[in-house]
Amino acid sequence: MASQGTKRSYEQMETDGERQNATEIRASVGKMIDGIGRFYIQMCTELKLSDYEGRLIQNSLTIERMVLSAFDERRNKYLEEHPSAGKDPKKTGGPIYKRVDRKWMRELVLYDKEEIRRIWRQANNGDDATAGLTHMMIWHSNLNDTTYQRTRALVRTGMDPRMCSLMQGSTLPRRSGAAGAAVKGVGTMVMELIRMIKRGINDRNFWRGENGRKTRSAYERMCNILKGKFQTAAQRAMMDQVRESRNPGNAEIEDLIFLARSALILRGSVAHKSCLPACVYGPAVASGYDFEKEGYSLVGIDPFKLLQNSQVYSLIRPNENPAHKSQLVWMACNSAAFEDLRVLSFIRGTKVSPRGKLSTRGVQIASNENMDAMESSTLELRSRYWAIRTRSGGNTNQQRASAGQISVQPAFSVQRNLPFDKPTIMAAFTGNTEGRTSDMRAEIIRMMEGAKPEEMSFQGRGVFELSDERAANPIVPSFDMSNEGSYFFGDNAEEYDN
């Protein structure tokens, strides 16, 4: 993207840094990872977990959730003011799984939030270390993106479920800051804005008074975040219109849905970061690795190297396929839920299948599930090659597409044709070009129609051997075009429920 120079890199967003050079960025990201790792080690000690239990991804998720809940100030305040039966607002906890007599047992633990905050700050040299908290939120978000298709949420806001490739980060909490905003897809931002506008339509006082002023500035800020994701002048001009509207209503909703559809071809720039579970960072720190000293990046080879040398386990339900569970977590670790499966298959070195073909449910185990038949197995999170994460949407291309997802959002900077089903997408653009945004709409449609099938995206960008740390010898991959490109292809993934 041309304006790259004016933006802070995501590592800076990730670490609240002012302008830093590459070495400083690597050190501050490393410091953040160190903090998460030290916190995780301490929690495993508190909970008396064995090494194996500490490497269980379900335990990692519970521990991450506990610290996120302990620092969720708004919710904590709300819980104190609106006490609900049987919930102690000062405590947080969740299921911890232990191996007892050759069987997995679930144990519900409860801790004072104050105590968890103390352990977290102690692991982070006394700081609140917001960057580390956001990092864990993005890992949870990436896992949700890989596990669930947001059909219901899309339909509720009037969008087409086939636009799911635009929904990265749709389950990120509001408090995820600049680093969170960077990884949100165009569809996620559109959905947040539509929800806001709908509230304004239904509630006369939404934009009024002292609160209304705050609401208005939040609305304009979200519009600017979305505008910054678009790469064409016409899309940005249309966002200006939406932002400046005196009284946002149905016309703005129409414009936003139009823009979301246009992003299936004229893709937005959305950041991709490899955020790993805390149970990967903990053992690495415990083994003596100093992330701050060595430096770390979320968008280069580092996460690949770390996963190459990590042992992570997962509980497996009786009829689940461990290899499929591994694929789910591998995609989440690489922030690749909406990437082209052919690119992923090449990088991973084994075939990556669409969601609907995987015999696996989510990673988390519900409290009512029976533990008797639970097994555990090693997650295979290694890769054959590594590639640089991208934040450009890439230019655009036609490809055989599917009944489910009709476009992709690249996660890796790797040369390819970008699949999208042009006739299906263009069919949504018939007729409606009147109104105050008509010239911009016409211009956007013209650009979409001009998108050429034979153009290559990320020209000359390749993948790298894991021994090639400096990215000196790019390998331009070859793809098996007979395979499906979309992950949520004609899909039956479970729906995400809060």
Rank of each mutant, 00 (worst) to 15 (best):
M1R: 00
G5K: 09
T15M: 06
Q20V: 13
E24G: 12
S28N: 02
D34T: 15
Q42E: 08
N59V: 05
L61E: 03
L61N: 06
T62R: 01
E64G: 14
V67F: 10
L68R: 00
L68K: 04
L68Q: 06
N76R: 02
N76M: 02
K77S: 15
L79Y: 15
E81T: 02
H82K: 15
P83V: 00
K87Q: 03
K90M: 06
K91Q: 14
G93P: 12
K103A: 13
D112M: 09
R118K: 00
I119E: 05
W120G: 05
Q122Y: 09
A123T: 07
A123C: 03
A129P: 01
T130R: 07
H135P: 05
M136Q: 04
M137G: 10
I138Y: 10
I138L: 01
N144H: 04
N144L: 01
Y148C: 15
Q149P: 14
Q149W: 15
R150A: 13
G158E: 10
M159I: 05
P173E: 05
R174A: 04
A178Y: 06
G180Q: 10
A181L: 02
A181D: 04
K184W: 09
K184I: 14
M189C: 06
M191P: 02
E192N: 03
I194W: 15
R195D: 10
I197N: 14
I197C: 05
D203V: 04
W207S: 05
A218H: 09
L226I: 06
K227Q: 02
F230P: 14
A233D: 02
A234F: 08
Q235N: 13
A237K: 08
Q241C: 08
E244C: 08
R246E: 09
A251G: 12
F258A: 01
F258D: 10
F258G: 07
A260C: 12
A263S: 06
L266M: 01
V270E: 10
H272R: 12
S274C: 09
Y281G: 09
G282P: 12
E292M: 09
K293N: 13
G295V: 06
Y296V: 12
S297H: 10
L298C: 14
L298E: 08
G300M: 11
I301R: 01
P303S: 02
F304R: 06
Q311A: 03
S314A: 00
R317Y: 06
P318D: 05
P318Y: 06
N319R: 00
K325F: 11
Q327P: 14
Q327H: 07
V329G: 06
V329C: 06
M331V: 13
C333T: 04
F338C: 09
F338P: 12
E339Y: 12
V343S: 07
F346L: 05
I347S: 04
R348E: 08
G349L: 01
T350F: 01
T350A: 02
P354W: 13
L358K: 11
A366C: 07
S367I: 07
D372W: 06
A373K: 15
M374Q: 10
E375L: 00
E380R: 02
Y385Q: 13
W386N: 09
S392P: 03
T396C: 02
Q405E: 13
S407D: 10
V408F: 09
A411M: 09
S413M: 10
V414Y: 10
P423F: 02
I425N: 09
A427R: 01
T430D: 04
E434F: 09
T437H: 03
E443C: 10
I444C: 03
I445M: 14
R446W: 12
M447L: 06
A451S: 04
P453I: 04
R461N: 12
G462Q: 10
F464T: 13
S467H: 02
S467A: 09
E469F: 04
N473G: 01
M481T: 14
Y487T: 11
F489V: 15
N492A: 03
D497Y: 04
D497E: 01
D497M: 15
N498Y: 06
